[in-house]
Design a protein around this nucleic acid. Sequence first.
DNA 1: CTTGACCTTGGATTTAACTCTAAGGTTTAT
DNA 2: ATAAACCTTAGAGTTAAATCCAAGGTCAAG
Lengths: 169, 169
Amino acid sequence: MVMIVEQGGFMYRIGELAKQCEVKADTLRFYEKHGLLTPSSRSDSGYRLYNDNDVERLRFILRAKAVGFTLAEITELLSIELDKSNWACADVKGLVDSKLAYVNERITELNHFQVSLQRLSDACCGGPESAEHCSILEALESNTDNIKCENHAHDHDASEYTKNCQSKG
Amino acid sequence: MVMIVEQGGFMYRIGELAKQCEVKADTLRFYEKHGLLTPSSRSDSGYRLYNDNDVERLRFILRAKAVGFTLAEITELLSIELDKSNWACADVKGLVDSKLAYVNERITELNHFQVSLQRLSDACCGGPESAEHCSILEALESNTDNIKCENHAHDHDASEYTKNCQSKG
DNA sequence: CTTGACCTTGGATTTAACTCTAAGGTTTAT
DNA sequence: ATAAACCTTAGAGTTAAATCCAAGGTCAAG
Ligand SMILES: [Zn+2]
Ligand SMILES: [Zn+2]
Ligand SMILES: [Zn+2]
Ligand SMILES: [Zn+2]
């Protein structure tokens, strides 16, 4: 790796920074195009050169992403970060809390899916027999929430797959 | 509403079916373009005419969507549904279970976000004071998972917002 | 006979966050 | 000196599921 020395720190080319932070160079160009991260300088031949400050900014972005923020939200966070004294804790916490509310909604939605899918799964024997009387298909055909457990003339031992349904009441 | 009588059932025009099932007409055209639902006939002037069978198929689609399946997955389910005897319970349950696994992964991911965001939120007073010492921003700046609770010289009473941090250990 | 609601088509747009391509210039190692 | 690895740009493509648009045809009511 070739380090270009700035005053007191290192300068990284795009590929070096990418490797260091485990993102693609494309992603860094994308972030630049969208105003999230602009390298502090360019080499004579036009190569992007990132300094330690830029690295810190990228790490900020990646941490915010890891917490669930979108790039648009991160843009907001960055503008606060660069001008902290003109923002209040309320502003920052507001961003976090509205993201939290969104995440909670999505979790609720997925939990509904989870419960429904689990019920469907539990009602089906999953055996090699014909799906003609499959409880899953029947549940999707009917308009009730009530899922009947399979009771069809499967060739295999019924005890295996009727267990599930009984245990779920 | 004008009902066109087929042999023994009703025929619905696209807007009627859309209203009845609470989808947009555009959505029905979209489903048709993607092979999920083709009206059984057309009027002389080319209007789509859906019969009871088509309605049932749409309801199947909507129920599958409500459970979290994508349209691509629903296409698979529909092809099984139309040819049940050539498929096994294992096939159907397989679709449900792989969706379930995906949903569980997404839930896990969102739960991580949720926990992280909640920790950030708890560490911030959310007051009208300067964000210069905001714990949220500090957490995003630093590379540790450890979030320090705010302890800055806010003008307001500290008891309110330090409670959270202490209660989380 | 005209208004307004409804329908037709094909194609463009939306959202998010990349990811990839093409065509070419630069650096480094051998 | 030349190949490999890296870099540049602008712009197109990806994914899912619609949603919207324009330009025009159809139909029932008054
Ligand atoms: Zn079965
Ligand atoms: Zn089954
Ligand atoms: Zn504060
Ligand atoms: Zn704060």
